[in-house]
Write a protein that binds this DNA or RNA. Structure first.
Lengths: 228, 228
DNA sequence: CACTGTATGCTTACGCCGTAAACTACCCAC
DNA sequence: GTGGGTAGTTTACGGCGTAAGCATACAGTG
């Protein structure tokens, strides 16, 4: 017969890798373990995947692709288009927290990443941004998605925080860290907070588009210069 | 005599680790190599450092500390205080790009990280933010520093980008990625772009403080709802 | 002085990792 | 059948973090 039902293939390896990491975390992904998961020796995988690095890159691309495979119609407002991408990426990353470590740490640019960057850039260009501002805007939006979301996904849960943070929760270090102690127990929903950030970014971009001087505050003081 | 001039110590190990990584990158840091760098066997290090993980955590703390050890006077405007921290962290991270991978990926909260969070939080509280908004604000500022800066520090240089990106620069894929092709060659300075982002964030925070509805755009449409 | 406890560094070893190289078993076209 | 490609295995190398035990050298006490 044609290849037995359980023959290896690039796709089966990739899917198994995603499943393994979903189930047991990034650090559980080794070629040996991935092999046994597929009922096969580690070295067999190399018939289908050039290296572990390439496998990781493929996993990244699969994830990034999921952010844009239902991109909103180009007829929409640029704000709606950006917002949709940002929220979709955010949800996908929070569902697979391990993806954060993969996507943010590997600077490799695959096809999906290019399509993703293209979607953001054209939304900005269609929205009337100059190429210069669209360029910055891509970095701002990308940085927000990757960075802010990453911070949320990695935010240590109370359990992993250790004694010091527990003490903070209990109000023990209130004299040493009064600010944190006052705010640490505030209600806090990742999606709601991200919505805040998305709005902040989009409104900021709108401000930039309208030609407000970029690095000057309303008061006229330049924080850049004030610092450096 | 008292310990010979070149005796090991926690501090000497830590400094050597920082120096090694500065010189040869994060992936060059192994206990064996760190040992030879200090003229000592790998296992000797364990007399002074409990584990490699703890060593990495200490390195993170040393870096974060550098962001705040010249914190601006609390007499200053909250905007100036946040701006100063954000720019200082940014410069420090761009100077040691490897620190990005350490600081962002390890959710461990050391002393310096607490002081850093405290500095941001009190700046916001002193600026009249409610505890609830200060809490969100800390996450927004922290996420921007860690996230946006991280994206910049990791932005692949043209050399590491591979053929596809080179083709983009050459305008080859202009039909497939018209937006990117139009904007990819825009001038682009990390510090200037970050200043844009810092201003965007600070102005956004000011807007929040003034009670503008958080997740609603000027047009009144909710992007969150529009998406989810 | 000898004696002993402690601190420091070294040696060896274990079980992981990614993967290069050579080998076997099979299946299909001629 | 038989030669060639394909899929999976075996073995091995050099690396990793670190547990366990050993050697040395010094400090304090009698």
């Amino acid at each position: 017969m044609t290849p037995p039902r359980d023959a290896l293939s690039y796709d089966r390896v990739l899917q198994a890798a995603l499943a393994l990491v979903d189930a047991h975390g990034l650090e559980a992904l080794s070629m040996r373990r991935l092999g046994t998961e597929l009922g096969v020796e580690a070295m067999s995988l190399y018939r289908h995947v050039p290296s572990k690095d390439a496998l990781l890159d493929a996993m990244v691309d699969a994830i990034v692709q999921s952010w844009i495979d239902e991109t909103p119609s180009t007829a929409d407002d640029w704000r709606a288009r950006l917002s949709a991408i940002m929220h979709r990426a955010h949800r996908a990353l929070l569902e697979r927290p391990w993806a954060v470590d993969l996507v943010t740490v590997r600077p490799r640019v695959g096809d999906a990443r290019l399509r993703y960057a293209e979607a953001i850039t054209t939304a900005l260009l269609d929205g009337g941004f100059t190429p210069q501002l669209a360029h910055h805007g891509l970095h701002i939006v990308d940085g927000t998605i990757m960075g802010f979301t990453a911070q949320q996904a990695r935010r240590p849960n109370a359990a992993a925080l250790g004694d010091r943070a527990q003490a903070l929760y209990d109000g023990a270090l209130a004299d040493q860290y009064p600010g944190i102690s006052r705010t640490i127990r505030e209600h806090h929903d990742h999606h709601e907070e991200y919505a805040l950030m998305v709005d902040l970014v989009i409104e900021g971009l709108a401000r930039l588009r309208e030609g407000r001087p970029p690095h000057r505050s309303r008061s006229g003081a330049s924080y850049v210069l004030a610092f450096s």
